[in-house]
């Protein structure tokens, strides 16, 4: 087992953690979105690392799926942000709380 595998996993976990912290912390919706992308890519990295380490073919296609989903998500999400911005003139996530109980 090469040490690069472990390093790759550690990198993936770090990226994921950064992503999560960013999602929780950031107030701007675009920033949150970028952090979500970071998390997705951390996961992709982990997929690829596992696939390479164990010689499995499934990792590659899964990464492609994830990227497709991420692209679709970005399309839909950005469209929502633009719609919100048109009515509120901002996209601060903490102030968008219409569903508050």
């Amino acid at each position: 087992m090469e040490p690069t595998f472990i390093y790759t996993l550690v990198l993936s976990a770090t990226l994921f953690t950064f992503g999560i912290i960013g999602v929780m912390w950031k107030r701007n919706a675009i920033s949150i979105f970028m952090n979500v992308e970071l998390m997705l890519n951390a996961a992709n990295l982990a997929f690829v690392a596992f696939a390479r380490e164990f010689g499995l073919i499934q990792g590659g296609p899964l990464v492609l799926f994830v990227m497709t989903v991420a692209a679709a998500e970005a399309g839909v999400g950005l469209a929502i942000f633009i719609a919100i911005y048109r009515t509120r003139r901002h996209i601060r996530a903490d102030e968008i709380d219409l569903l508050r109980g």
């Binding site: 929780m24 996530a93 903490d94 219409l98 569903l99 508050r100 109980g101």
Partner: peptide
């Protein structure tokens, strides 16, 4: 009392999920 939990902020929901 329970209503306060439902504060409408996506990030709080995310935190709880996490």
């Amino acid at each position: 009392g329970l209503r306060r939990i439902q504060n409408g902020q996506v990030q709080t929901y995310g935190l709880v999920m996490f």
